[in-house]
Amino acid sequence: MDALQLDALREMATIGAGNAARALSELYGDRRVTVRTPAVQVVPLARVAEAVGGDRPVSAVVMPVAGTGGWMGLVFFDDGLEQLCRPLVPDSEDDLLRSGMVEVGNITLTAYLDALAAFTDRPLRPGIPELVEDSAASLMTSLLATAQRVTDVILMAAQFELDGSHLEGQLLFLPEEEDLQALLRRLGMDL
């Protein structure tokens, strides 16, 4: 993928980030949330587990893409996702915190998926999100095992800012074959 196409992909990610920031700001009440995706890369299947973090522990919200197959995911190392959601449930009830984590993931992923659906003109709809805590490699290989028509993964660095504190995560899009081709066509790369 050349620099221009990556720029176009980054542009799409920026629209998703704007959607996500608006929706999250509502969820967090009057607090201002900003989301940026400064870097985007396309990673082939064989390298994905390492690229996302190998044996490092992650917490992630993953969501199947209904309508076509494929997955979206929001991944943080260690307790990054918990830190992001802690302000939502200050009284540290574990169940509430976990549902807060799922909801933050749901809102973020749906916002990006909407941007992707508009950009590619494909019927991408959010499925049921769920929270997974495991190693990056276990997560990625298990995602790929359920999505056999995925050949490349789009990996976006995601920076969240809430009340002045910064948190770094990763956003994943595992497009089903036809969705990937629609995306590449939109970027001017015919396969």
Binding site: G127, V132, D134, S138, S142, A145, T146
Partner: peptide
């Protein structure tokens, strides 16, 4: 052969492996 996704992995790939 674990099953990481309670909702979405309806085929249970781990068990089938």
């Amino acid at each position: 052969g674990a099953r990481l996704f309670a909702h979405s992995d309806t085929l249970n790939v781990g068990l089938r492996n």
